[in-house]
Amino acid sequence: MPEVSAPAATGRGIGRTLVAVYAVFALSSVGRSSVQLLTKADDAPVPYALSGFAALVYVVATVALARGGIRWWRVAVVACLVELVGVLAVGTASLLLPEEFPDATVWSGFGIGYAFFPLVLPFVGLWWLHRTRPSAT
């Protein structure tokens, strides 16, 4: 592993608020997707599977941002990138293939059901991770 300084703590200052926002999304998406997958998985398998995946991404991002340290910083970057690709891909797919999405996921329509927060959040997350990036020495 190359010599790099520790990243600035990602869970401090505004980062603490960001972790809280991610936690809200993590809890609500875990709750929502577990109800969907446990009670009516066959009704809309594609959106419900994607809901579950989104929930997992939010949980990982929340934990990684809260923990800090180089390794967790990297995990957070990956989580935010996956989140960004996910909201863009699912958002586009939900508009192009509406018949595959009989029920909404958190990322449907680029997060329109959540006031577009899901679209903005990965950008904020990546900006914050850039601000707190470890500097090479």
Partner: peptide, 12 residues
């Protein structure tokens, strides 16, 4: 977090 970051968490 005894600053604005903490207050924003309360607000949220």
């Amino acid at each position: 977090e005894r600053n604005r970051g903490g207050t924003a968490v309360i607000l949220l």
